[in-house]
Design a protein around this nucleic acid. Structure first.
Lengths: 333, 333
DNA sequence: GTGAAAGCGCTAACAG
DNA sequence: CTGTTAGCGCTTTCAC
């Protein structure tokens, strides 16, 4: 059995209060007593039991992070940001993977509440009103990060997606592209960031006097991008498309894989740009021209803002926008 | 303030023991009392405080997972395995990222001990004897997963790397390759899995009456693979190499990137195989022929074995070997 | 500067 | 079946 504060007190011939004082440096202790306590701690290899400490202080120094899938590289980056900053303030994170199940997300919220985590960061890709209600009801400080759905009623950290799409369109224009195909995911389009991006796409392309071309597809995975290939090929021929703006990097990569298999060269025969800058975007060949979402920073800012709430500091904005960046790489010429 | 067991007891007009009994279903309670308690719980939205519970039961239901970098896809896969199985047994994981620092690993072990985690899984890529000593000294159940270094003195889950390399050599042989270059990482070669793989490589190639060709390089990242390109190109010409066996997928991908940039086609002009089956290996074009390490299973088996120790079940083998698999894909013809 | 004592929220004997 | 009680290991008044 590990030694406790009592053992230390006994060995140092002081009361447990005194021991507590020296380990927390909370009140002055005579040098002599301190010396003895320190010595006893050393000899007994005493380490305070954080569980007991939490019980009395009501501070678990734990924050719960619910993610869809830590296997997604962008999620991992966000978690890195959360953890690294959290640790600076002495917070540990307990990780929960929901694998996209709304029900599981809710279960985790309840679990984390029982575990006395001081706050929750939800990194999700689904639309789950109920989990937000749940957290709100529990009055747990939280931040909601969602790469796809627009979040308005909860604190969140994101980028200005309208502006980002506009930046990309301006870039394509500067590269003399006019006939640009935008590939979007149709599901829940109205309540996702796609509504903003499409608006930016349409506004810009119309301002050039060009007809918009939008392809709605079913998913946003690499496979979905690949599968859209046949359809895309047809549109390219019909409309004389010279550049394709994919709403997510994964789609761009899948599509380029399709082109590769069909002998269509990117960017020589067709320019393709993505959105998101997932880690693969810079590793894949050709490297993907894209909009960078600063995932690490998203996580870092999210936890900073969470910690602020914990300390009852003045609440900042509900929605924090981080700067965007256009990454000019090889897939678009 | 959240309601406590006392509040429930008061409202239900029973003692706290009775409440405890119904929430834990630990002892029979009269239907009537049970009904009242349940009703009170509902009304007060009572949820047991796991911290308090942990303090008395001495079970935190937490296990600590120290990783190098959760941003590595293989690490993420391992963590998925750990978490998913852990959750089946009601364990949560607290995640600690060391970013390859031995010192940080040790700090985390101490932290996790204070936090009363019941066991530790260390997913590391470095050689850190001290952390093992530390954990052993604390008598914390643990499992040590290390992709590179051979682990003998600690419980671990891995694959038979000698056999795996042999399987790959046999495959290359079956594809009529004889002059095969093996690229290895030189650092700590004697105490890493490279010692085994090189042994298998040499044994096999010599058995065909062919001279071994081993290139030692400095790292094992994609960039390191890329940077080895010039040297590799020279060796290819000098020795008439037809296939390259890279000790890690990352190196294979970096090298293929180099070849791509130089107009050397893989697999048409040169066959390249990797090792590890990182997630990129199946996404990258050409897809990489490689040895699959079952990362998810590694994590899953690791925590299963940890949990067994926690329950004082008979200790299995120190080293558990999982089945390997050769993935025949596009990069080798 | 120090110790005694109360109590954080809960479980687990122990009596009844 | 149920309540009383004694802690778990620690922090924090409150006196001295």
């Amino acid at each position: 059995m590990a030694s406790t504060i009592k053992d230390v007190a006994k060995m140092a011939k002081v009361s447990i209060s005194t021991v507590s004082r020296v380990i927390n440096d909370s009140k002055p202790v005579s040098p002599e007593a301190k010396r003895r306590v320190l010595k006893a701690i050393e000899e007994l290899e005493y380490r305070p039991n954080e569980i007991a400490r939490s019980l009395v202080t009501k501070k678990s120094n734990l924050i719960g992070v619910i993610v869809g899938d830590i296997g997604n590289s962008y999620v991992a980056q966000i978690v890195r940001g959360i953890e690294e900053i959290g640790r600076m303030y002495d917070y540990d994170i307990v990780l929960c993977s929901s694998y996209g199940s709304a029900e599981t997300e809710i279960k985790f919220v309840q679990l984390l509440r029982r575990k006395q985590t001081e706050g929750i960061i939800l990194v999700s890709e689904i639309d789950n009103k109920e989990v937000v209600n749940q957290i709100t009801e529990f009055k747990l400080p939280f931040v909601y990060l969602n790469k796809y759905y627009t979040i308005d009623k909860s604190p969140t950290v994101t980028i200005d997606n309208y502006e980002a799409a506009e930046v990309m369109m301006n870039y394509l224009y500067s590269k003399d592209h006019r006939k640009i195909l935008y590939i979007t995911q149709k599901k829940d389009k109205e309540i996702t960031i796609e509504s903003l991006k499409i608006k930016a796409y349409e506004k810009n392309i119309k301002s050039w006097g060009v007809e918009p071309n939008i392809l709605n597809i079913d998913g946003r995975s690499i496979d979905d991008g690949y599968d859209s290939g046949r359809m895309v090929e047809r549109i390219i021929k019909e409309k004389g498309i010279t550049a394709i703006f994919c709403c997510q990097d994964e789609i761009a990569i899948g599509l380029i894989n399709y082109f590769y298999d069909k002998g269509i060269k990117v960017p020589e025969d067709m320019s393709v740009v993505g959105y998101g800058d997932i880690s693969l975007a810079s590793i894949y060949r050709p490297t993907i021209t894209t909009i960078r979402e600063p995932y690490y920073d998203l996580g870092a800012v999210a936890i900073r803002s969470l910690l602020k709430k914990l300390n009852n500091e003045e609440e900042g904005e509900q929605t924090i926008n981080l700067p965007i960046q256009l990454l000019e790489r090889e897939s678009c010429k």
